[in-house]
């Protein structure tokens, strides 16, 4: 047993980055798909909470956490579909519907999730990549959940698909110029609805990670803006799935700074350290946005940045 002392902080931040980043990664990949189609779904926060509740509930009743992950994805898909269909109506604003979905998804999850606050559902397994080390801290830091690896694979696959497949090209065209897509004979609303539903699926999966792995239980305070931060993260990542992964790691590290410092005995200012991800998000947005030029890589139809 080796004591790491203050070195425990970076190790814990690294481990935390791997753990905490997974929901960020899934939600931001989902939002990436949606935003590529030219719409923005701010309701992913609500979908995340709904996915967390559904995943936990299904894992508890069926005994299989992976079934829970799938169910969480399906719940997210339905909510994403709702967002997509509402936004197909003329004059309905996608940002406003996102705010509505945030309240609706959270409310529905709290309502249906009441019976699951107490019981313990089976959690997702993890792969011990740190077994070579004698230090328990390093072992704990390198417990990697399969969803994290799936997320990496998904980021690479999406980056490839956006560039090289027919679906990816159609999606990007709809997002860059709906007139061009319409002229080519594609149904713009249909593509956008499908993209929002797919984004909802991934956000739901991200939510199930929260309740089934880390922190690993269902409660009403489970999500604190991860879904929303992921939206900002996509802007930071310039709508590039691979950069979404790096950004998610960065955000995960910021999110685990508070608990890591607490574990070595720094307790004063605990709440302020916990605000680190929000401050980081805001700082990044301030640094990367500009009122005068449009952002590189932004889908032309997106209403989020003027």
């Amino acid at each position: 047993m080796i004591e790491l002392g203050w070195w425990g902080v970076p190790v814990a931040v690294l481990g935390g980055a791997i753990r905490v980043s997974t929901p960020f990664l899934f939600v931001s990949l989902g939002e990436c798909i949606t935003e590529k189609s030219g719409r923005i779904n701010l309701g992913l926060e609500g979908i995340l909470v709904m996915g967390a509740m559904t995943g936990y509930g299904v894992s508890y009743t069926s005994g299989s956490p992976w079934l829970g992950v799938l169910a969480a994805g399906c719940a997210g898909l339905l909510l994403g579909l709702l967002h997509g269909l509402l936004c197909n109506l003329p004059k309905v604003n996608d940002i406003a519907v996102g705010i509505g979905l945030m309240l609706f998804g959270t409310g529905l999850a709290f309502f249906l999730g009441k019976p699951y606050v107490q019981p313990k559902a089976p959690s997702l397994p993890s792969i011990p990549f740190g077994a070579w080390s004698d230090s328990t801290q390093i072992q704990a830091a390198l417990q990697v959940n399969p969803l994290f690896l799936i997320g990496i694979a998904l980021a690479l696959a999406l980056a490839w698909a956006f560039r090289n497949t027919r679906w990816g090209l159609v999606l990007r065209m709809v997002g860059d110029s709906s007139n061009a897509a319409r002229a080519m004979g594609y149904k713009v609303n249909l593509v956008r609805t499908a993209a929002t539903a797919a984004g909802g699926f991934l956000a739901g999966v991200g939510g199930s990670f929260l309740s089934l792995y880390y922190p690993g239980s269902w409660s009403e305070g489970l999500s604190s803006g991860q879904g929303l931060m992921a939206v900002a993260l996509v802007i930071f990542a310039r709508w590039n799935p691979v950069q979404c992964f790096y950004a998610a790691l960065l955000f995960g590290g910021a999110g685990s700074l508070g608990p890591a410092l607490q574990s070595v005995g720094v307790t004063s200012g605990y709440y302020l350290y916990n605000a680190a991800p929000y401050v980081l998000t805001l700082a990044i947005m301030i640094a990367t946005c500009s009122p005068r030029r449009t952002l590189a890589g932004i889908p032309g139809e997106l209403s989020i940045v003027r």
Binding site: L42, I95, I99, S224, G225, L228, M229, V231, A232, I235, G269, Y270, Y271, L272, N274, A275, Y278, V279, T281, L282, M285, I286, C289, S290, P291, R292, I304, V305, R306
Partner: peptide, 22 residues
Amino acid sequence: RGVNETISSLLLTYIAIAVFNH
């Protein structure tokens, strides 16, 4: 700075709550 006000105002809420709790 051209930062989307919907996102920034909600982030500011989380920061405000952290300051309040502190």
